[in-house]
């Protein structure tokens, strides 16, 4: 990292970071051992998962639960555990290929109206 990183002349002084929120570029998704997946048939859009997610990784569109930010989701499983209707299922990363989900983690068996699967 040090070889490509800017030298002392090119860094802002004082250790100040002047790119607010740039940790978004840092992907914590690869910490994950299991990923949450969503069954839209069960989901009631109560957004409990959103309010309890430590990583801001529950995607909400127009007040509806829209899936997961897999670039940052660390797979803690709080969303699945706190979901009052068991709409979220944790799936081992090793077995992800065995489940049909879209890129946001919405199961393909879910009704198409909310997802991007058109």
């Amino acid at each position: 990292m040090s070889d490509q990183a800017p030298g002392w002349k090119d860094l802002p002084i004082g250790g100040v970071i002047d790119h607010a929120g740039n940790s978004f570029e840092y992907e914590t998704g690869d910490w994950r051992a299991a990923r949450p997946t969503l069954d839209k048939n069960k989901c009631i859009d109560c957004l409990q998962c959103w309010v309890f997610c430590p990583d801001g990784s529950i995607l909400v569109e127009d007040e509806k639960m829209a899936g997961f930010d897999y670039q940052h989701c660390k797979g803690c499983g709080i969303c699945a555990h706190t979901c009052p209707v068991d709409a979220i299922e944790m799936i081992s990363e090793e077995k992800v290929g065995e489940v049909e989900i879209d890129e946001w983690g919405v199961k393909k068996s879910s009704p198409p109206e909310k997802g991007d699967q058109g």
């Binding site: 990183a5 002392w8 860094l11 002084i13 004082g14």
Partner: peptide
Amino acid sequence: DYYFEHKKQ
């Protein structure tokens, strides 16, 4: 990765 550069500054 960066502390040293900040000290040099």
